[in-house]
Computed example of a mutant assay.
Amino acid sequence: MAEEETTIEVSTADELITDDELQNKSKGQLIKNAGQFRDRRNELNQLASSRASERDDLNAKTREKVDEAQEHREKRDELNERVQEHKEIRNDLNADANELFDEVEQRKEDLELDEGKDLEQLKEEIEELEFKQQTEVLSTEDERELIEKIEGKREEYQDREEKLDQSGDLEGLVEEAESVRAEASKHHEKVTELADKAQEHHNQMIEAYREADDIRDEADEMHEDFVEAQEAADAHHEAFVEVQKRLRELDKQEEEEEKDKRAQEQEEAREEAEEIYERFKEGETLDTEDLRKLQKSGHL
């Protein structure tokens, strides 16, 4: 709710009424001033209360945003811990997979499986040579060379077949290595997924802290406005009290003056009664008013 614009121009009682004004203004003027100061004080106290309430609301919102930021911080840290856990598992699995693949390559190297032709290719070459021997008319020398070539291919085939047999579970080792690598990839995907979520919470934390700072600035400004209104209210209250004090002094002064006046009147009445009484004693005839004054004074 937007606050109604209120102009506040003073902060001390001296700015409202000076000592000279207190001493020289009439009682009627002071009574009017007292009412004005009282009404303005009440208005300013209400304004200060409104500003304090709005400040407190803003401070509460600030705390809510700080709590929200803290929640995002905790979730981010929790996710980062999980990221680290999956990273460690991924790295261990990748290390295991690398060892298995190295073992596969070492076995291949030891068996020379990467060198030479595969069994299917050798088999085709042997069959082509045997077909040539069976279908073509060759000289004795050519046929002998062809038979030697066929025998050499058969020996190569048999040697490679024996090496493959010696490799044992090499294929199974490859499958195991690939399985471990696949498991490492799953953990890497989890690392990426959790890291993205952690970054989201980090961004939300930063935004919540930024909003908290903005609201806190508003609360600080509102607190300054509250202090301004409260100080002005206090100044008007002080001025009201000073005027009331001066009015009491004037009332007392009037009472003293009235008392002095009555005493003076009584003294004058006594002296007059004494004079009348002396005239009475001398035998002078008194009128009704003179008799009344003598009776009032106690001489009769």
Results as ranks from 00 to 15, higher is better:
residue 213 D to S: 14
residue 287 D to V: 13
residue 16 L to S: 02
residue 253 Q to R: 05
residue 113 L to I: 00
residue 197 K to Q: 10
residue 78 E to N: 10
residue 295 Q to K: 13
residue 83 V to E: 00
residue 209 Y to I: 10
residue 166 Q to F: 15
residue 29 Q to S: 02
residue 230 Q to R: 03
residue 217 D to K: 13
residue 132 K to A: 03
residue 49 S to G: 15
residue 134 Q to N: 11
residue 182 A to T: 05
residue 247 L to A: 00
residue 157 Y to K: 03
residue 134 Q to W: 07
residue 250 L to H: 07
residue 156 E to M: 00
residue 60 A to N: 08
residue 125 E to Y: 00
residue 291 L to H: 09
residue 205 M to A: 07
residue 277 Y to T: 05
residue 19 D to H: 07
residue 28 G to T: 14
residue 177 A to T: 00
residue 299 H to I: 03
residue 131 F to H: 13
residue 82 R to N: 04
residue 281 K to C: 14
residue 221 E to A: 02
residue 78 E to K: 15
residue 106 Q to F: 13
residue 30 L to R: 07
residue 123 K to P: 08
residue 15 E to G: 12
residue 84 Q to D: 05
residue 103 E to R: 06
residue 270 R to Y: 14
residue 66 V to Q: 15
residue 46 Q to H: 15
residue 52 A to E: 12
residue 219 A to H: 05
residue 124 E to S: 09
residue 129 L to H: 03
residue 290 D to I: 02
residue 275 E to A: 10
residue 129 L to P: 05
residue 91 N to P: 08
residue 105 E to S: 13
residue 57 D to P: 13
residue 140 T to C: 13
residue 47 L to T: 15
residue 100 L to K: 14
residue 86 H to Y: 08
residue 129 L to F: 00
residue 107 R to N: 02
residue 52 A to D: 07
residue 29 Q to M: 09
residue 243 V to G: 04
residue 77 D to Q: 02
residue 104 V to G: 13
residue 170 L to S: 03
residue 207 E to M: 03
residue 137 V to P: 10
residue 6 T to H: 06
residue 235 A to C: 05
residue 211 E to W: 03
residue 36 Q to I: 11
residue 7 T to V: 06
residue 163 K to R: 13
residue 201 H to P: 04
residue 183 E to R: 05
residue 173 L to T: 07
residue 156 E to R: 02
residue 259 K to P: 14
residue 239 A to G: 12
residue 74 E to Y: 03
residue 176 E to G: 05
residue 101 F to Q: 09
residue 174 V to M: 11
residue 201 H to L: 02
residue 191 V to W: 05
residue 135 T to P: 08
residue 40 R to G: 11
residue 200 E to W: 00
residue 237 H to N: 13
residue 1 M to C: 06
residue 195 A to W: 12
residue 146 L to Q: 01
residue 146 L to A: 09
residue 298 G to N: 11
residue 108 K to E: 04
residue 203 N to K: 14
residue 50 S to G: 10
residue 182 A to P: 14
residue 101 F to N: 06
residue 132 K to F: 06
residue 13 A to D: 01
residue 66 V to D: 02
residue 70 Q to M: 04
residue 176 E to M: 04
residue 160 R to P: 09
residue 29 Q to C: 06
residue 163 K to V: 05
residue 288 T to V: 15
residue 247 L to H: 00
residue 200 E to M: 09
residue 252 K to H: 12
residue 249 E to H: 04
residue 201 H to N: 08
residue 235 A to S: 04
residue 164 L to V: 00
residue 219 A to V: 11
residue 259 K to N: 08
residue 212 A to W: 11
residue 51 R to Q: 13
residue 76 R to N: 08
residue 35 G to Q: 04
residue 155 E to Q: 14
residue 108 K to I: 04
residue 207 E to A: 12
residue 252 K to Q: 08
residue 81 E to L: 08
residue 46 Q to L: 08
residue 175 E to F: 14
residue 87 K to C: 06
residue 90 R to S: 11
residue 49 S to T: 14
residue 170 L to F: 01
residue 10 V to K: 01
residue 98 N to K: 09
residue 241 V to E: 08
residue 83 V to L: 09
residue 33 N to S: 10
